[in-house]
Amino acid sequence: MSDNHDEHQHMNIPKYLGIFGILVVGTIATYFAATIDMDWIFPGANTLVALIIAFTKMSFVMLFFMHVYWSSKLIWLSAIASFFWLAIMFAFTMQDYVTRGTGIFSV
């Protein structure tokens, strides 16, 4: 319990408002980034930028609003593990689709 009591000192209202500000800025940035055509860099650059911003926003929410920053290793681990498993699902599914080659099975 003492851990949780310490946590009281970590966040205060100005800090919460600061995080909130970052999230608002992130949202606006996402919108405007999406209106710029970045396909000339490489196809999908827009999506990459959008995802980077989303990840940043998520990190702030998780670390400070959800107090992960002050949480036990196990909680860090479960947060990271879930994204790792998502990555497995994405990567191992996509390794099939991107290597289908041409022909009837390529759809």
Binding site: I88, F92, Q95, D96, Y97, T99, R100, G101, F105
Partner: peptide, 20 residues
Amino acid sequence: FLVWGHHMFVSGQSIYAGLV
């Protein structure tokens, strides 16, 4: 969690994925 594709060898999954 890394082997599920072995149920799909003849489903139309890519040969490369099958290998992995």
